[in-house]
């Protein structure tokens, strides 16, 4: 990357960070609460970008660990302590556990099959959440969740501003950790797997292990985001994790440039802000306009076409991506 571009990107990042820190003093409480919720969704978008962009495993199911994290942080975390860090840990563990439970479903599937399976898993989790009334409060959700204190000895987060700043710090730290880990060999291996899994296997790498690992890690990040959502809105219901949330997250990641973790955050902010704005301006017609926005994005999105394929397995319609027909038939018992 040219040095000027890198400097520009650093500059923008700094400006955005300063703006995020100063934002609460510039806007009203309602907007601050919205911003805090957007940060939580942005963190889920980061987990989607991790899977979809970095590892090339497109997903529509990150709402599942997100929901698991949110409910775990209320139901389990609430009983353990009122410390936000504990809730975060519980939520991340729940998200990771759910992701680990679904690893056998996704580890050997690729491409559109992953989309289908993850979507089905996400929807089933939301259905379960809606039906399991004794624990989750069913479709009514859980309200009146007590505020948390960020760390032992600190005061509870009583205002929207405090909750926003807490969410901001957590998101900044977690995104920083993700970016740092991606700079190690982990990032290299994930990108190599996105390019060509068979080649990675031929070099002696355990690809299934990488896929399982990134799934569990993305699940943990989404779970932590669930805890942030609970802190931000002090209320949780299955409506927070619906199918439309998955689609919005995917849109956010695509707008953000698919590969970029920071871009996913910005994409999420844009998408959520436009959605909330739309619902305010056009109460009845919002879904229509939002749907048209999806369609328009697909048609208008610039730049991404120049990039090499970013999805493991089949990306384009089969006829285009098929390699030349091998000159011999597949033997029986061939390993894929």
């Amino acid at each position: 990357m040219p040095r000027a571009l890198r400097a520009l990107r650093r500059g923008i990042t700094a400006v955005v960070l300063v703006g995020l820190v100063l934002a609460p003093s510039a806007v009203d409480d309602y907007t601050v609460a919205l911003l805090a919720r957007t940060l939580a969704l942005g963190l889920v978008a980061v987990s989607v970008a991790l899977l979809t962009g970095v590892a090339g495993l497109p997903t529509l199911g990150q709402t599942a660990p997100y929901a698991a994290g949110a409910y775990a942080s209320v139901v389990v975390g609430g009983q353990l302590s009122d410390v936000g860090l504990v809730h975060l840990g519980v939520a991340a563990a729940a998200g990771a556990a759910l992701a680990a439970a679904t690893v056998p479903l996704v580890v050997s599937a690729r491409g559109v099959v992953v989309l289908m399976i993850t979507l089905a898993v996400g929807e089933l989790v939301v259905t379960i959440v809606g039906r399991w009334r004794s624990v989750t409060g069913g479709t009514d959700g859980l309200a009146g969740i007590p505020p948390v204190r960020p760390l032992w000895g600190l005061p509870v987060l009583a205002t929207d501003r405090a909750r926003y700043l807490y969410a901001l710090v957590v998101v900044a730290v977690l995104v920083g950790v993700v970016l740092l880990v991606l700079r190690t060999r982990v990032g290299l291996l994930l990108r190599a797997g996105r390019d060509d899994e068979a080649r990675l296997r031929a070099s002696g790498h355990r690809v299934a292990l990488h896929v399982a690992g990134v799934h569990v890690a993305a699940g943990a990040v989404a779970g932590a985001a669930g805890s942030l959502l609970v802190v931000a809105q002090q209320y949780v219901s299955p409506a927070d994790f619906g199918f439309d949330t998955s689609a919005l997250l995917l849109l956010a990641v695509v707008i953000g440039g698919t590969w970029s973790v920071g871009g996913a955050l910005i994409g999420a902010a844009i998408v959520i802000a436009s959605r909330d704005w739309l619902f305010g301006v056009l109460p009845g017609q919002a879904p229509l306009v939002l749907g048209l926005a999806f369609v328009a994005t697909v048609y208008l999105l610039p730049g991404a076409g120049h990039r090499p394929p970013a999805v493991r397995g089949r990306l384009l319609p089969p006829a285009l991506t098929r390699r030349p027909v091998p000159d011999r038939p597949s033997p029986t018992g061939v390993r894929a």
């Binding site: 990108r191 080649r199 296997r201 031929a202 070099s203 790498h205």
Partner: peptide
């Protein structure tokens, strides 16, 4: 192939590619 590569059997394919985005 992965387990054999870890034991020291490496193969160079007819179509060289590597990982294009690395």
């Amino acid at each position: 192939p992965a387990a054999r590569a870890r034991r020291g059997v490496n193969r160079i394919h007819q179509r060289p590619a590597g990982w294009p985005t690395l």
